[in-house]
């Protein structure tokens, strides 16, 4: 029983990583109606920027804010330079663009900061949380920040003009344009916000998985799984999905002999497929009706 509780707690801690990343995935999905395969690498790059700023002697929170600004602008720049010209291109062209971006960012980060593992500080410290050895104060802080982000995102999309305009621009660009929304800039804004959220995710994840150019590889796949489980259009779903994937993965790994150990990653992928087949919109997603 103790092992069970421990695995669930560890699953929640790992789930917080996935939840964080899933939020960024949902954000970009809301803005452009696609998944961005380079999302993880963008987050990794931002985290390296934060690390570099701290190496230069800036305090954590200054570096944090500067990184947010850098990532926000960086996201917009990427959209303006790379994806705006491709706006009318088919989905496959976008996918190719994402993959190219993935490889470019990964290699450039390797070139600038090399591939050795770096320690990334946590603002919350890493002592045991409430006496539990399984969740550290950092992981508790991470869950807390994820929840705050969730509330902010929820409010943004539900109650602000820009948020509503952004949703409109993504799901019905034609109609959005007709009511006077500058859809082009909405998409750019979406990229900026997704990059900024990604950078928060990166800075929260790095103290746990350690900073190196490939740190996001596995995380992004689990983030996708979490977002799909929860529903790609729902920030709440993404967060719940993250925790579910974390716990599910640990329990399967522990209690289904043989399968779990060797097949932990396929479990995440199997989860994606199962959800897509059984409940295509995820646990919390809304059904999308398209007029034909």
């Amino acid at each position: 029983m103790e092992l069970f509780t421990n695995q669930v707690l560890a699953g929640i801690a790992t789930g917080a990583i996935y939840a964080c990343m899933a939020l960024a995935v949902v954000m970009i999905y809301q803005a452009i109606d696609h998944l961005n395969f380079a999302q993880g690498e963008m987050a990794m790059f931002s985290t390296f920027v934060a690390w570099q700023l701290m190496q230069w002697g800036l305090p954590y929170w200054v570096a944090f804010v500067l990184t947010l600004i850098f990532s926000f602008i960086g996201g917009i720049v990427i959209e303006r330079l790379l994806f705006k010209p491709l706006a009318k291109a088919p989905v496959l062209t976008h996918v190719a663009g994402f993959i190219a971006l993935f490889a470019i960012i990964n290699s450039v980060a390797g070139l600038l900061w090399d591939f050795t593992i770096k320690q990334f500080p946590s603002p919350f410290g890493s002592s045991p949380f409430l006496g539990s050895q399984l969740i550290s104060t950092h992981q508790a802080g991470m869950i807390f920040v994820t929840l705050i982000l969730l509330v902010l995102l929820f409010a943004f999309f539900r109650y602000t003009r820009v948020g509503l305009a952004m949703r409109a621009a993504a799901s019905m660009p034609e109609s959005a344009r007709l009511v006077g929304i500058n859809t082009g800039w909405m998409i750019a804004l979406g990229w900026g916000m997704a990059a900024a959220i990604g950078s928060i995710a990166g800075m929260l994840i790095a103290p746990v998985v350690f900073l190196e150019p490939n740190m996001m590889g596995g995380v992004l796949i689990y983030g996708f799984a979490a977002a799909v489980v929860g529903g790609l259009s729902s920030p709440l779903g993404a967060v719940v999905g993250g925790f579910l994937v974390g716990i599910f993965e640990n329990l399967v790994g522990t209690y289904i002999p043989g399968v779990g150990n060797e097949l932990k990653l396929p479990i995440a992928l199997a989860l994606i497929i199962t959800v897509l087949v059984v409940k295509p919109n995820g646990l919390f997603g809304r059904a999308i009706v398209k007029r034909v």
Partner: peptide, 14 residues
Amino acid sequence: YEVTEPTIDSHVLN
């Protein structure tokens, strides 16, 4: 464990 796993916490617990 697989190299792609983000953390190996669960294995260490077991």
